[in-house]
Design a protein around this nucleic acid. Structure first.
Lengths: 163, 163
DNA sequence: ATAATTAAAGACAAAAACATCTTTAATTAT
DNA sequence: ATAATTAAAGATGTTTTTGTCTTTAATTAT
């Protein structure tokens, strides 16, 4: 009786849990929140501190930060007292969509809503129109959120980043 | 001059294009659209025909179909004149969300909007509320769309499935 | 009964994502 | 100049996803 339930569970279990964003992108966004918050206090932060703050693998996160600096989304300086930071200009830019764009690409909020790579306005897939609204909302949110918006209103601290 | 542009491109290129759904899920949805359309005409369809109709790898798609039949989302019969189909009951169920659920899981439209696994209503992340709306809309769409809705209104044919 | 047809299942292979370790280059302080 | 500190870059390893191939089991028709 218990056994058969277990067998059923194993039979049915498959257990994927795909997220909206890739791990790289997730770390990129989390890191940006942390860096933004520190940039408001004119602090630069290093790879080690960032990885610790967001509970992410250090070397892997560093790769992601490299991509973001290459694209001019965040700034970096080497040597003692170096680290990552957002310039004044960067803080007040709507770069959230750029972070997602350079790491995960724009397929998530452009192209076919179902992610099917199979439809357009002229030859829509069965759920094209319902999905259009959703991805337009997603794109709009990503494109209008300022980097500085990520850091303000964090009264309760940054503890959530570690989870 | 041209060369330096090429170098810049290589330097910046990274080119990921992550989709909303996994390939398995994409094939699952596409296959369901095709099977639903055929089920309306009381036809069963085999793996070979399905893979051809949606331009997907046959064996891999078959695995996905197995998952869906295991969970009772689609029906199957072996032997000559066998194949996959939706029963009357299944056609009129809101199973689109189930397809996504058993293949990709519910993280996409539940949990933290940013996919950060880091926030809840009490301790929201910086974009929690903006994202809540988007994923609620997504969940609502998936949960209210009937399987039969995937197949009706396809006047222009199923050619889009092959793209 | 036998052969044909079809889905189910298992073993395996390739590619992509995720992650780590080592070396190099730039900057600063001594 | 030298040592210390930090990001950048390269090489490599692991895990997950994606994809293929082979065998088995169920069903139907002959």
């Amino acid at each position: 009786m218990f056994l058969s339930l277990i067998i059923l569970f194993v039979y049915l279990s498959h257990n994927q849990k795909k997220d909206m964003f890739s791990k790289a992108c997730e770390y990129g966004i989390k890191a940006s929140i942390f860096i933004a918050e520190q940039s408001l206090k004119s602090n630069k932060v290093g790879q080690v501190a960032i990885a610790k703050a967001i509970s992410s693998p250090e070397a892997f996160t560093a790769k992601t930060l490299q991509i973001l600096t290459k694209h001019g989304i965040i700034s970096s300086e080497r040597g003692p007292h170096g680290g990552f930071f957002f310039s004044e200009l960067q803080l007040n830019s709507t770069l959230l969509s750029h972070i997602v764009e350079v790491i995960d690409g724009t397929n998530l909020y452009k192209g076919c809503g179902l992610g099917l790579d199979c439809c357009n306005e002229n030859a829509p897939c069965p759920v094209h129109h319902q999905f259009k609204q959703i991805r337009d909302d997603l794109r709009n949110m990503l494109e209008t959120t300022l980097i500085v918006d990520l850091a303000i209103g964090l009264k309760s601290g940054l503890a959530f980043l570690k989870r």
